[in-house]
Design a protein around this nucleic acid. Sequence first.
DNA 1: CTGAAAGCGCTTACAG
DNA 2: CTGAAAGCGCTTACAG
Lengths: 347, 347
Amino acid sequence: MSRSSTSRSAEGRRRPPTIHDVAREAGVSRGTVSRVLNGGHYVSPAAQDAVNAAIRKTGYVVNRHARSLITGRSDSVAFLLTEPQERFFEDPNFNVLLRGCTQALADRDIPLLLMIAGTADERRRNLRYIEAGHVDGVLLVSSHSGDPVVTQLRRAGVPLVACGKPLGQTAKVGYVAADDRDGAREMVRYLYASGRRRIATVTGPPDTPGGVERLAGYRETLAECGLPADESLIVPGDYSRASGEAAAGLLLERAPDVDAVFVASDLMAQGVLDTLARAGRRVPEDVAVGGFDDSPAAVASRPPLTTIRQPWDRISAEMVRMLLARIGGEEAAGVILPTELVRRESA
Amino acid sequence: MSRSSTSRSAEGRRRPPTIHDVAREAGVSRGTVSRVLNGGHYVSPAAQDAVNAAIRKTGYVVNRHARSLITGRSDSVAFLLTEPQERFFEDPNFNVLLRGCTQALADRDIPLLLMIAGTADERRRNLRYIEAGHVDGVLLVSSHSGDPVVTQLRRAGVPLVACGKPLGQTAKVGYVAADDRDGAREMVRYLYASGRRRIATVTGPPDTPGGVERLAGYRETLAECGLPADESLIVPGDYSRASGEAAAGLLLERAPDVDAVFVASDLMAQGVLDTLARAGRRVPEDVAVGGFDDSPAAVASRPPLTTIRQPWDRISAEMVRMLLARIGGEEAAGVILPTELVRRESA
DNA sequence: CTGAAAGCGCTTACAG
DNA sequence: CTGAAAGCGCTTACAG
């Protein structure tokens, strides 16, 4: 226990022990130490033990810079949020995703670098950093179609996994997404089963997967249920609460007899609830409201929202797993994860 | 324009240009290239230009690992969220802070590593990483008193700046905080000025600066206004919405004549609003409600909250500035930033 | 102002 | 299974 625990003074930082200190302590060469550090192949059990003991004794931690310099890997990963998705930062879902990725990576001892590319300048800077090889791969949050970042990253050959299906360029880009279409179907089926017959929808932007897929699920299910397709029941939103409020206003004008609305996000559903309350419609008695996401907003709204749960924990875990696989040379793939209906009071 | 733009194939990643390639291109030694890279001291204008041109032409980007290996700096910074503050992750304030820090660092080309120390195991891992010198400093979110991470980081001599005053160990720890006490004072003064005389408060936990400072501000102002100190008007909460709901219930029992309540967070204020609505009290007519934070919840709640705005943008900018100064050798300091009353409808 | 050289702490063939 | 040695891409005194 001579100089174990800490190798720093109370004042400042000392020079940490190197592989050389460990080798001396263990009575072996630096090569041997390195070998046990990297999997312990071709090392005798005796040497193993000696080295491990020496590592504990000296408090040795590998210098990642030196390692990276020679391996060419950085053993770190970027979490990149691109412009169109920037407001996602205010979305509670984002936190769950970010935290999930951080922890899944931490389990493998891989640091996560957070990058925000809100402006063109920031985008340039981040791309430069990434393309310089400072990270081994990137977890991308950017589902809008035609995002230039996706194209550039792909061209640069950087391993890449997107959250949500990258519209139009699914070919070479790995992605993990919730089953938007099926989630929408389940919700609409549920509304129908509870007796609703004038079921409207507030959609997401048409250049997002959630915008198109959830609408598609809505349309299909209506048809399956034998309900007429009525375009006046379809109102566009942009995922914001304000757009939900406005959409509901429009809806009430165009179709006063509406008795249910499937809203493509919880945030918008809150806006719908606001408008409905102001119009004196009771929820769910007069109008049932179904959301999407199962974000904190679903619990926070009054009444609490019946909604479709996105499996964020699984999504983040899967994104990390897939990115690591891609870094290891595996081909891109798309993973679609099932959603789940969560019943609360709004429908 | 021979091999400018990209130096990678469409297939994978090529070996990026090194300082050696730049030197050859510019017709100078590697030492000279390095000098212009590091500030351009002792370099002739001619050499400057030649090197800069060569950098552009080759698309050279410095290999940070090689640089760090020799300088001993990592040129990166950790953003560490520790256990007691973990739920802060669900707090919208957190996003603003994290984003602000990320961008302030990005402006200086310093990557931010996100770390979450929710469990003891995670804490150990993160500390190990940090103490190994893999980051130059840490931005810490952990305001609960007696956080072991603070002590360990301090002992390890790692430059450190906390968000919020670290109770009990302000000595050697730099921190940036909003002026909680003054914010509380302003709110209570405002409630008093609008004619309220039975002003209650829902507090934060007593081991957080927001818990103690905001309560202190409340008490002081009441005294100054000549209002009697009535302990039944003080109800504890834990910053959660649910605790706000419960606190308001208790309050209504103990002091049915309450006509205003200063709530130490917007989230709790939402809970207070819920209970008040259920009890049939009109806000602000019967009871005025003041929050704290000016988080998105303040706008989202019905009615929108009159609250105290925390200057998160300034807080994050200041945290980064101070951390960089500390890394540069400057002494620790505490910075208190002023808050601002935001009037909306609840008071 | 500039080049040659040492060295940061590792990993990895290459011989044994 | 193990050691000696080369080399990853930089920075920084040290001589000129």
